[in-house]
Design a protein around this nucleic acid. Structure first.
Lengths: 221, 221
DNA sequence: CTGGATCCCTCACGATACTG
DNA sequence: CAGTATCGTGAGGGATCCAG
């Protein structure tokens, strides 16, 4: 997108010149979950052409958002990770995801759910005010994707992989969004067989209070 | 950017499919300041090709972010305004501008400042916590661009045009960013002749407390 | 296997001219 | 004022190939 910039001396323009190109913010989204190798990024973004991924990473590095690092031996592989400047985009991406979630609807048949997108979906929809005093560990299984979310008194730690000793393991699919959007009650979802639980079933109702897709963005606090 | 979408069932992807194309978020930025006619938008975005502006407006309307409205007689002109969905992007854009402002540096010689971009710059950098109990009206003149900012106890109303009876009128240029970023003290700016004041000069120091470009984004509250 | 580079093709975007 | 029409260019898409 920065072929010739926007010609405006403005923070928003500058931001778009830095990360406004196609695919760029999705790469940042995945890197917000943690450092990743080239192949990890390709796996998380199956539709990105390899030359584009290569271009974007080089530009992001040149612009100071991403650092290319060789991990210590013995594996000695290359990982890409966000610099402090790049990490500063977290709030932007969380707000973007919050806004976009209300436009999600049902998944298109060619749309997939990836590990990083699901982790970020939880971070996006988490409501700290609903989590005061709570200590719950969730494991979430969406098709092949397995992630976890540990809620501790208004704080969330969400990441890839399972959570041994989780209070509740939720196996589900597209019904998850419907529940989080308040279009489908947890009870109905269970009845329909849209979710499979292992652990305390009451914690599912709690889950949809903690992670919620708001119908409408609040206009201004 | 949504030629074929990203193929991911994810709020961030969906958001980028809706507003990720080039120029789109700058159009939304301008519309956040208020409804605008086609020509107003062209003036505010001099580098946008007219067919692209036309395309973007049509797509934004089709996607439910923008409404095309004919103003009541006698002028009967056409204005574009944000729907509630479109207005929901305000937080995204404010965060984006906050992040991008730290990468601004000195203006390139072909970069301009527009009315809407300056209004949004103030909204972006406003710190409510620095404004408790204050009641100040500023008029800001940046080249040809004239805008105003009325601060009232933690709230900001910023818009285009002058502010009759302003407590302080600030005439300035690129030095404004340097001051807001803490790279240039208000006193030095006055000494150098980089700003021209009409009103209480002490309110300039207050201004740079109210509107500040942070060096680094806070990583996470 | 990872971490890319290369090639070709298409279509979105850019520049400009023109119209109701 | 509010766009449409036309046409050229280059970024992005897709497949394949290559080096460590």
């Amino acid at each position: 997108m920065a072929r010739r910039g926007y010609g405006q001396f403005c923070g928003i323009s500058r931001a778009l010149e830095l990360v406004g190109e196609r695919w760029t913010l999705l790469i940042v989204r995945d890197l917000l979950v943690g450092p990743k190798r080239y192949t990890d990024l390709r796996t998380g973004l199956p539709r990105i052409p390899t030359n584009i991924l290569s271009d974007r990473l080089k530009e992001l590095e040149r612009r100071g958002l991403v650092r290319r690092r060789v991990t210590p031996r013995p594996d000695g592989s290359i990982v890409y990770e966000l610099t402090e400047l790049g990490s500063g985009l977290e709030e932007v991406i969380l707000h973007l995801g919050r806004w976009g979630a209300q436009a999600l609807g049902e998944p298109d048949e060619d749309e997939i759910v990836t590990t990083s997108s699901l982790v970020m979906a939880l971070r996006t929809t988490f409501r700290p005010e609903a989590a005061t005093g709570l200590h719950i560990g969730y494991e979430l299984r969406f098709g092949e994707v397995v992630i976890h979310a540990q809620v501790d008194d208004g704080r969330l730690r969400a990441g890839p992989g399972e959570l041994p000793g989780a209070d509740l393991v939720i196996e589900t699919g597209p019904a998850l969004r419907a529940m989080m959007a308040g279009e489908l009650s947890p009870a109905d979802a269970i009845d329909r067989g849209d979710v499979l639980l292992t652990g305390d079933p009451a914690l599912l109702a709690r889950f949809v209070e903690l992670f919620r897709i708001e119908r409408r963005q609040q206009t201004r606090a």
